[in-house]
Each structure stands twice: as C-alpha cells, then as structure tokens.
C-alpha cells in the first residue's frame, strides 16, 4: 500500500462531487454530492494519518480531525434537510434553478 492510492481515490471522489454540485438541479442531489466531497476529504486525511512519519503521540491527529468533520457534516445535513423540507412546503419545488427569490 502506498499513500498515493488514497490520494488518487480522494481526488476522483472529490471531482465526482464537484460535478454533482454543478450539474444537478435537485437540492437533495446537491446535498448528497457535498457529502461525497466531505468523504473524499476524510479518505485523504485517513491516508495521511496512516502514512505520517510523526511519533505515536501525534499520529492520531488525522483521525481526530475526521471525527470533527463527520460531526459537522451531520449537523450540516440536519439543517439542510430542514431547509429543503421548508422550501418544499412553501414553494412546492426544490429545483435550485427556479429558486431565485433572493435575486434582487
């Protein structure tokens, strides 16, 4: 195993997420693509944590960061789903191309 496999997998997954965010219309799909991008970052951090040349006292830094990223991702998902449900109830629509009420 080499670090480069983890890095390449993370890069591919991140680019799939970028495509999803830019190209899909549904807000739920955009949310799922953001989760994919967060996972790509987690894979990268795990790779660096496993291959780091730190001593054992600092080796777990990467895994601690992954725990915080997962926490923030869960909080973000809860808020985003709430906003999407609210939008659906008020506008009957979650297509981001047609939600332009903030446009001046």
């Amino acid at each position: 195993m080499e670090l480069i496999y983890f890095q390449l997998l993370a890069a591919i997954l991140f680019c799939i997420g970028i495509y999803g965010v830019l190209a899909r219309r549904s807000a739920v799909l955009i949310l799922m693509s953001i989760e994919l991008m967060l996972n790509a970052v987690n894979i990268n951090l795990i790779g660096y944590a496993a291959f780091s040349s730190f001593g054992s006292a600092h080796r777990n830094l990467g895994q601690v960061l992954v725990i915080f990223i997962i926490t923030i991702a869960a909080a973000e998902l809860a808020l985003a789903m709430a906003i999407i449900l609210r939008l659906y109830r008020n506008k009957n629509n979650v297509n981001v191309d047609e939600l332009d009420i903030l446009k001046g």
Binding site: M1, E2, L3, I4, Q7, A49, A50, F51, S52, S53, S56, R59, N60, Q63, V64
Partner: peptide, 15 residues
Amino acid sequence: GSATTTMGSTNISEL
C-alpha cells in the same frame, strides 16, 4: 510522490 511507505496504526484508547 509519497515519501513514507510504512503504515502505522493508532489504537482506540490513544485516540
């Protein structure tokens, strides 16, 4: 490229 090729683990109690 990558410099190190040895993997090291951290156990759960350290984490």
